[in-house]
């Protein structure tokens, strides 16, 4: 019944194409608005095609590109550092959890799992980071908290367990030590799952705006998303963006916000879909219990 070429398929494609419009339209508008002349936009509103093409918004954004470049630099640095560290720490932590001959497995499992069930909430962490560890207003605040996520550890553990026991047993008979088994057998065989988790983690970090909002006072350390949030919400932030020397009347404020959004989000939207394979895999892995 799925072989027949039918009207049904055409209807199905039409439904999907309508859905595509619903998903793509907002982006088209975003891009179009960023290329529209400011006065034309104020007159005609946002539209699917620029009513009057202009690069003014981008010129203004790139006139003083330092803020954007800094935010990119900060975001790339902490995203890569946190993803790398987190992947290493979580892959190691998952190993004893996956091994039946680890005698404290139950205790460790509970220790990790409990963090998923209960948390002290926002304020205690806030006080810890600001008043005890004093890592607020440094790049470390983006990297260290939340480095270990119980949920991801469980996903990695599950993928370790999927490796046949015989493999480990055979290695043991050959005299392999646990550490050797972990680094030379289990981790290499679980590369795909670990990559999926790493990618999910990376997307999460890249999109982080809350850490800046809570802990960062130095504008040079703002994350990209937070800079964008400020520009979206606060007209003043936009005026300050270019520094002095430009009166607010001359600035294409409306279109500039969109140009900013494109510059900040565009690269990722182009790159991430190539990694979608990992993404979908990670998402479906989450449904499996170990």
């Amino acid at each position: 019944m799925r072989k027949k070429k039918s009207k049904g398929q055409i209807v199905l494609h039409i439904v999907f194409l309508l859905l595509m419009v619903a998903y793509i339209l907002p982006f088209v508008c975003l891009v179009a608005s960023s290329f529209t002349d400011e006065t034309a936009l104020v007159q005609n509103g946002y539209s699917l095609l620029p009513s009057k093409f202009s690069l003014e918004a981008y010129k203004t954004v790139f006139r003083t590109p330092m803020k954007m470049i800094r935010a990119y630099g900060v975001t790339i640095t902490f995203t890569l550092a946190a993803t790398l560290l987190s992947t290493v720490v979580m892959s190691l932590l998952a190993y004893p959890l996956s091994r039946p001959n680890f005698i404290w497995r139950k205790q460790l499992n509970f220790f990790v799992y409990f963090t998923m069930l209960f948390s002290g909430g926002m304020v205690p962490s806030y006080l810890l980071i600001r008043n005890v560890l004093h890592i607020d207003n440094t790049i470390l605040v983006y990297i260290l908290p939340g480095l270990v996520s119980a949920y991801y550890v469980m996903i990695i553990r599950t993928s370790y367990r999927a490796i046949p026991d015989e493999l480990v047993e055979a290695a043991k008979i050959d005299g392999a030590k646990e550490l050797f088994i972990c680094f030379k057998i289990i981790i290499p065989l679980s590369k795909a799952s670990i990559a999926s988790v790493a990618f999910l983690f990376l997307v999460e970090k890249w999109n982080d705006w809350m850490t800046s909002m809570l802990y960062i006072r130095n504008p040079d350390l703002y994350s990209l998303q937070y800079l964008l949030q400020k520009l979206l919400r606060e007209a003043d932030a936009l005026k300050n963006y270019t520094g002095l020397g430009m009166s607010s009347e001359l600035m294409p404020t409306e279109t500039m916000r969109f140009a900013m959004a494109i510059v900040a989000a565009g690269p990722v939207l182009v790159i991430f879909p190539y990694f979608q394979k990992y993404f979908t895999k990670g998402m479906t892995l989450g449904g499996v219990k170990g």
Binding site: V203, A264, L269, F272
Partner: peptide, 9 residues
């Protein structure tokens, strides 16, 4: 893949 900030935009 989008952050909540972009969603708001």
């Amino acid at each position: 893949f989008l952050s909540a900030v972009i969603l708001a935009f």
